[in-house]
Structures are given as structure tokens and as C-alpha cells.
Design a protein around this nucleic acid. Structure first.
Lengths: 252, 252
DNA sequence: TCTCGCACGTGGGTCT
DNA sequence: AGACCCACGTGCGAGA
């Protein structure tokens, strides 16, 4: 469709140049007009000698402004097919719609990236807000949407502050577990997942002062999210209290 | 600058409606023109009876197309100040530039997010390609610029493929260690750093099929890079072969 | 030749 | 009334 001739450039531009030349100056103001027109006005002669001339000038100015805008529009659009007036506007329309569509795509890509980053962003801020993990909660059936508070008594145990399982695709799951950091917590966490005998595809442990988080991509052979979570929780309890004291966990 | 009157709407729209009404039909084609004009033509009468009328029609069509484009342009721009011709174009120009700027911003935000996600994206595709972890390499003295190949013999030991220490600031060091992944490698690595009794500021373990890497930020109390590296290597050997068989490591 | 695209002046609208 | 904006018909210049 777009023939994109290219020899239009010189044509239009030179024409445009000459026209704007003759338009800008060459007379003072309203001299030539009143000489050629006001004398032959047939309707009203005396009431407005410069009325027609003024109108001409003002109309001229209007056209100039309009063309100015057209050039500005043309210069704002990168892909110009022809230097035509209508084509310029058509190109502008297409370009705008193209930009809008691209904006939409980028927006959804951004939100996609953001949501992919959310799982990390949910974990990291915990580092800053120690108040969140200060309240040593005793209740063990809080069971909000997707966080599970387990962690038995005392001193050097694993205190899990977050445990979330989410399926990715049919055969894999993301397991995110965060706990307070004490000496040996990292080793214990590793042991937990070692003891689970899961097929771990990828794993990532991030450890900062006060907190340690473990994110794994595992093969979840038909297991549901809740099931997997219980299994991990059980393993945590097992490692935590080797004396098989798991009375306080509602294991299915 | 933009006064945004708002009462223009009804004015222009009704006017526009009436004009398009009278333009579209109301005559057949070129009947009224030839009747009112061709008879009073002063220049050439016989050569082209429908020439002027055709021109009129063609010009009319041109204007119609142009206005059509203008409306399309106006409908493509969301924020219209006035239904003016010039204002429409001005709005279109501003909107285009606005979109372009926003595109630029979104582009750089996307690239920022992409770069943040790179560490994950490098890992995930491996899930699909199992062939990548088939080639178990046997060579252990590759020794490129800053990589150290240590690792003793066979089966379930830690085979370290890279160990690098670099100071960051005066009192901290980054320790990067990569090794082949076998069962228990992650636990062993954790034990290594647990046994070193280092003051670990942050730690990160990333584990993909076939390989496991551990990056730590530790307090290096006056230790030099080489010194730290030897210490880590010794600990690896210690965990690897608890019978203190460290003959193949050049420990200072 | 004819077609295309344009600027021009003008009349005719509406809103202050 | 002015100011404003617009469509119209027309002449003109450049390309097929």
C-alpha cells in the first residue's frame, strides 16, 4: 500500500518554501488587499473599509497557524509515508494507535515482571520490619490465607515466619519458606529439604542478618499446595525436634 | 494557556452535523453545480462543461476525506481541550510527545526489571533442557584466571569448580564458591560455612541441576583474599574427607 | 492532456 | 457588532 515515492520531498518543500516566503512579508499589512478589493466591494462600502482586509489577514494567519500545527504533527511522527496533508494525519493516527497498543503491551509486561518479582519482594521487606517478627506468637491455628505459623518453643529452634506453596504449571511447585536466623538455621533448613527427598529443580537460599529465606522449585508429583505445605511443615518440625515431638502441628 | 471552555461541544458538533447532512445528499451529483456555475463561466465554456463541476466534486471529496481524518485523529486522542481544528492537532501533537516520553520511561523500567530478573531467568529455562546436565565433566585443573579447581576424587564428594574471594571495603569480603551438585552437596556446603565460624553478613545459595553456587558476604577481620580462600578450601576439604585427608590441596 | 494537492478569498455560521 | 471558525469554489503549480 505504501508506495513511498520519495520525490515528493523536493516538490512539496520547495513549494511550501515559496508560499511561506510570499506570505510572510512582501507587503506591509493590508495594503495590497485594500487596493484590489475594497474599491470593488459592492455591498457595504463606507462602514468597514478595512473589514474585508482584516478578515483576509486573519484568515491568512489562521491558515498559517494550522499549517504550522500540521508540520509540528508531521515532525512528531517518525514514519511518514507522504508529505501529503491527509497522509500526514493518517500517519499520525496510525502512529498514535500503534503507540497506544505498544503502551498496553509494555504495561502488561511490566505488571508481569512486577508480579514475578513479588514473591521476592514479599520476603525481603521482612528484614526491615523487625516488629513483624518480634511478636512471638503462641497461637498455632492462625492459618491466614497462605501463611503458616509453626515453630515450637525455645532457644535454637527453627522459627518459621512464612511458608507458602504455589503451583507453577502441572508438575512443579514453588516452595517459599522464611524463618528467623539463629546459629545453624541455614544448615537445618538444608537438612529439612534434604530429608524431604523432593526432586528439587532449582533452589535459592538468601540469608541476611536476622532472617533466612529459602525458595525452591520442586517437582510436585501430583501433590496439592496444602499437601505440600503440610509435608514441609512436618519436615521442619522433624528436624527441629528430633525426638519426634510434633504434637503441636496439625499434620494430616 | 488552555482555557478549556467546554461549551464549544454543542456548537461545533451541531454545526458539523448539519454541514455533513447537506453535503452527503440533497442533490444527485453535479446537477446543482452545472446549473449555477457552468452557465456563468467566463473563461472557457465549451471545452469542458463538466470540468469545473468535476473539480468541485473532487475538491469536496478531498475536504471530506481530510475532515474524516481529522475526526479520526480527534477520536484517537483521549484528552481534547477544544473541538477546534487547530486545537485538535495541537492536542494530538502533545499527546504523541506524551506517549513517546511515557514509552521511554516504561522501556527503561522494563529493562530495569529485566536486569533484576536476570538471575532467575538464567535458571528457569534449564528446567526444560535436561541435556544440559548430562555431561559430567572429569577435568579438574582448568584453572582459568581466577578459578580454582580443587576437589578430590570420586563419588559423593564436593567437587569445587570455582572459588573466588574478593574484598569489599575494609572489613568485608565476598566469597563465591561453585561446585557440582550431587546429593547432599548443599548440606555439605552449609556445613562448610557453618564450621568456618565466619561472621556472615549475607549469604545466597543458588542451586540448579548439576551445579550449586554459594555467595557470601562475610566479615574478613584483617584477612587477605588468598588467606581467606585457603581457609575456605581447607574447610571444604575437611567436610569432604573428615579423615583429614587433605593432601591434594596446597594449604599454606 | 488530466489528475492531484494546495492556498486563497469569501460567505455564512455561532458565540461573546 | 466584533471575533471566531469553517466549508466552499477557484486558480495555480507540479507530476502522470
Amino acid at each position: 500500500m505504501d508506495d513511498m515515492k520519495g520525490e515528493y520531498d523536493l516538490y512539496w518543500e520547495t513549494k511550501r518554501f515559496l508560499e511561506s516566503e510570499e506570505l510572510e512579508s512582501m507587503w506591509g499589512i493590508e495594503q495590497a488587499i485594500s487596493g484590489s478589493y475594497a474599491s470593488s466591494s459592492s455591498s457595504v462600502d463606507v462602514v468597514a473599509p478595512s473589514s474585508a482586509a482584516k478578515n483576509i489577514m486573519v484568515e491568512r494567519d489562521r491558515r498559517r497557524k494550522l499549517n504550522e500545527r500540521l508540520y509540528a504533527l508531521r515532525s512528531a511522527v517518525p514514519n511518514i509515508t507522504k508529505l501529503d496533508k491527509a497522509s500526514t494525519m493518517m500517519d499520525a493516527i496510525n502512529y498514535i494507535q500503534e503507540l497506544q497498543e505498544q503502551e498496553r503491551r509494555m504495561q502488561e509486561e511490566i505488571s508481569k515482571l512486577e508480579s514475578e518479582k513479588t514473591s521476592i519482594r514479599d520476603v525481603v521487606p521482612i528484614i526491615e520490619r523487625d516488629d513483624l517478627l518480634v511478636p512471638q506468637r503462641k497461637k498455632r491455628t492462625t492459618q491466614s490465607s497462605s501463611s503458616l505459623a509453626l515453630g515450637s518453643s525455645g532457644s535454637s529452634s527453627l522459627e518459621v515466619t512464612q511458608l507458602r506453596v504455589s503451583k507453577v504449571g502441572e508438575r512443579a511447585s514453588i516452595v517459599e519458606i522464611t524463618c528467623n536466623k539463629r546459629r545453624g538455621s541455614m544448615v537445618k533448613l538444608c537438612e529439612v529439604f534434604h530429608s524431604l527427598n523432593l526432586k528439587i529443580i532449582t533452589a535459592n537460599i538468601t540469608c541476611v542478618p536476622g532472617s533466612i529465606s529459602h525458595i525452591l522449585l520442586v517437582e510436585s508429583e501430583g501433590m496439592e499446595n496444602a499437601q505440600m505445605r503440610e509435608k514441609v511443615a512436618a519436615a521442619v518440625a522433624e528436624v527441629d525436634a528430633p525426638r519426634s515431638l510434633m504434637s503441636n502441628i496439625s499434620l494430616q
